[in-house]
Design a protein around this nucleic acid. Structure first.
Lengths: 204, 204, 204, 204
DNA sequence: CATGAATGAGAATTCATTCAT
DNA sequence: AATGAATGAATTCTCATTCAT
């Protein structure tokens, strides 16, 4: 195995170990020793890959969040042009996919909610950190463009939708209060639709 | 000065010192020694008032959050029966009052946003821990009642509004991104109005 | 109730509370606060009765040990002159009475074994701390005298018997190893008899 | 110097420092800082070798006790088959060797007596923690076997002898009361002989 | 006599980071 | 590049003791 692959594997192992421990014991009581042990590397080696625990955490959360968005786009097939759906329905489709996934992976939800700051979201999730693929942000704009409709402030729209969803879903999915996820969805989806509709600039 | 008053003053001093330090250095790097020093009491005395740093934090955040809500009710005069406003307008009034305050006290916003969990919110902010006054929760229901209108799930409504506001305001007020507070307000308020309206059960 | 009686009651309460806590949590992790709380007196009051935790412990263990010996004398009726038994049989009778009691009060056994030093034993158990009664030590000598037999070194005899019993009984009663108490007794008693017999100075 | 040797040396240094301090100031008032300082290592390093002060104490006392027994066997040459002695005389020889040593090392006697529980004795002193050598327990049984005699309960015999000796010697050696060691010996040895003899199962 | 709030010295323990191998 | 022993600063928390009421 070549050196770069080896390094990638070690990084991967550190990510996996850290996510496990963060989910189980919380970040505060997870030490670098714990992570290194679980990843079966020496403590000193940790520092060859990350500056410290929080550097790892930031990179991990960005990685996880990006993966969630990318997976949701792939799973729903939105923007692949096959089906002909309204922007509203496409957004709802994506949101629903994410919510269902979070329901099945509460640890992931907990971890992302607690650790994803808007700063990280912008830098690493929306912005492109590599040249390879379209970012989620690009896909979002492409989706709006294809619809042929015009929106006043697409960034604000995205922001509000993201905050509404993340705010509402945490408590509901993890605790089932004050309503269950299935009870929340109608109101949530309707609110999202209203937001989108109202952001549209009426064509003459 | 009598003993109970003395104890209250000490607790107050601890709260003040802690809020200052938490705001300045963050909770993690504020030690109990720091707090005790700033409050001019002995380290050991701290433990006569709080179990540990996190006990203090929870009680402090609940106290602060409750104060924000109570002040907003008082400042807007809502529910005092003077003006005749729609539920929507009353809610908007309260929300606006809170947003303006947060704009002026970014430390307070930061502290509450980072530390107020929904659990604490329910237990200590909404629930009554003393028999003296109406809680915010009581006031909220009384407001809905007085309007003569019926709503499907008032608790869900409250939940969604709170989450929307707190989600959206943090980034906007503290960083001015992706829009300024004044740019956010129209959309935010309209969304809130829509939410309330849609929760109403149509009278025959 | 008069003042002296009140003080005695408080001391009694402290003894009881302390013995309970020492037995349950160990001396090291029992604080003076704990004792005062359990005895329902204020912490400061503790110091009106004892110098510190170890002063209390020493007085408590002496009290308990003396009580064990006195009770054993009373329960067996030895030295009351009624029955005509050999010294050996009288000693065995007393030892057996103590062993049975310890079997029923393991906390007492644990507490005495761990805390009764030979120094305390001599000063407070053998020596008379008040003029009222015959001490155990006096009774012991009186018992030997009445038998009409002569012994080389009665103090050494007492010492060796006490050490043998206390050494052997702790493990056996509390853990049942390496033998049970009933299995131990024949050998133990026989050894004691041998010791006594061999200490006798042969009459011409 | 290789790593394992270095580690062994550090452990040795910790043992030595701890024994010194425990003997001088008592365990309770010896802090881990004290031990680390005396051993010339950093405080944190202590925890790489022992869980806490009591872990060190237990291992230290087991080590010391085992050494005493092993040395006594070596010094007396018992079980090496040279001289032809009765079991009784062999035991007396060993006991005498131990008593004399304790007389010369009162700190060792104090430390062992205060800290060696029967549990530790069984687990760490009698049981084998490594495969290298015969344990004291094995040697004891081998000694009985070689004699060609049969004993009812060798374990009980060992237990009673150990308890008798340790109980009697502490006070006598350290304080000279109620008799001196030399005055104690005849009675002590005779009692041991009686115990052994009485444990023998008579041959037909 | 009794109280219990306040004190602050002191001990244990953790853990990020370094660095010689 | 990888290791893991060593470090020691930093922090938490306890609790015996005092003293003003």
């Amino acid at each position: 195995m070549n050196l770069d692959v080896k390094k990638k594997k070690k990084k991967e192992a550190l990510f996996t170990a850290a996510f496990d421990l963060f989910s189980t014991k919380g970040i505060k009581s997870t030490s670098i020793s714990d992570i290194a042990n679980k990843a079966k590397i020496a403590k000193g080696t940790f520092y060859l890959y990350f500056k410290d625990k929080f550097d790892l955490r930031d990179k991990l959360v960005a990685e996880k969040a990006k993966r969630v968005l990318v997976d949701a786009l792939e799973d729903t097939g939105v923007n692949k042009g096959n089906k002909k759906l309204s922007v509203e329905d496409e957004v709802i489709l994506i949101v629903d996919s994410i919510l269902e996934r979070m329901k099945n992976e509460p640890n992931l939800l907990r971890f992302i909610t607690k650790n994803l700051s808007w700063g990280i979201f912008q830098t690493m999730v929306l912005g492109s950190d590599d040249g390879e693929n379209m970012t989620f942000y690009d896909e979002y704009h492409s989706m709006l463009d294809k619809s042929g409709r015009k929106f006043r402030n697409p960034d604000l729209l995205l922001y509000m939708v993201v905050e509404l969803i993340s705010g509402c879903s945490y408590q509901v999915i993890l605790q089932g209060t004050p309503v269950t996820l299935d009870e929340l969805k109608p109101d949530l989806f309707q609110t999202i639709k209203d937001m989108i509709a109202r952001q549209e600039i009426a064509e003459k």
